[in-house]
């Protein structure tokens, strides 16, 4: 069996080499993403400056929420989004077959042969905004709370990669699954805002079947010591466990879909 510590760097190296064949497009992609998110965050900050707070959250807290949301998304999506969005095409034209005959885990091959360095713009913006907001919010940082914050971030990134994996895996059975990304991004948009501004059924949905409240709101609220609807004192533990739990479900779904892969005919 292939040695992952050798194969993963080789896959990433090959992918980056293929991307740097078009350096202009790569840099332009980073700049456009930076500009798109930057202008959106500016708009949100201007609205907050007019109204003071949103669901009891002031601008530095919202900035932390937005930056956590973007950073968790970038980390998770760089491992998954483009790779699994292309799954439908891979199945339809048969290139998935060529991946399945490689002596390496199919998930590993797909993820690292498409590790998306295009999220560099997102990450730079998210880190910048987070660095500023952390100096503005009222949190006493200790070694334990810092470690907890990093763990929240990893758990949130795992949720993104797991959900993307599940959507992509569905294409192995349904051939078409990209419409599910539209549903995902609908909830993803909502996940940028404090959960308590939404009606109860939506809160419930975002804490269960569409668990994107755990990708930013729950961990950031737990960090800031804000009350979390429905979870209360369990918010911190739930934010830590959500990522591994969704990942386990995604692994089971991925294996089931792989076993039931039929190709698209031909």
């Amino acid at each position: 069996m292939a040695r992952l510590h050798v194969v993963i760097p080789a896959l990433v190296h090959t992918f980056i080499r293929s991307k740097t064949e078009y350096p202009g497009a790569m840099v332009l992609g980073w700049l456009s993403q930076f500009a798109a998110y930057g202008s959106m965050y500016t708009a949100i900050s201007l609205i907050l400056a007019r109204f003071g707070s949103l669901g009891g959250w002031v601008w530095p807290e919202i900035a932390l929420l937005l930056s956590f949301h973007l950073l968790a998304y970038s980390l998770g999506a760089s491992l998954s989004f483009v790779q699994f969005r292309e799954m439908e095409e891979k199945v339809r034209i048969g290139t998935m077959d060529a991946i399945l005959v490689k002596p390496v885990s199919t998930w590993t091959y797909i993820v690292f042969s498409g590790l998306n360095i295009g999220y560099a713009g997102h990450i730079v913006l998210a880190l910048g905004l987070m660095a500023w907001s952390l100096t503005q919010v009222d949190v006493t940082w200790t070694g334990q709370s810092s470690l907890l914050f990093v763990c929240y971030l990893i758990s949130a990134a795992m949720i993104i990669a797991a959900v993307m994996t599940m959507i992509g895996a569905t294409a192995l059975v349904w051939v078409k699954s990209n419409h599910l990304y539209q549903i995902f991004f609908g909830f993803w948009e909502l996940a940028r805002y404090p959960l308590n501004i939404f009606p109860l059924p939506l809160q419930l949905l975002m804490l269960t079947f569409a668990p994107l409240a755990f990708m930013a709101y729950v961990p950031v609220a737990a960090t800031l010591g804000k009350p979390v609807p429905l979870l209360g004192d369990y918010a911190s533990a739930a934010a830590l466990l959500a990522g591994p739990l969704v990942t386990l479900i995604a692994m089971a779904h991925w294996r089931w879909c792989l076993r039931n892969y039929q190709g698209a005919g031909g």
Binding site: A2, V6, V7, T14, E21, Y22, T95, P103, V104
Partner: peptide
């Protein structure tokens, strides 16, 4: 269905397989 990397020289695909197949 090609297994070669479209944008890279043939040698790069071969080299990747060297690692994958150990």
């Amino acid at each position: 269905r090609s297994q070669l990397w479209w944008d890279l020289p043939v040698r790069d695909s071969f080299d990747l397989n060297r690692h994958i197949y150990d």
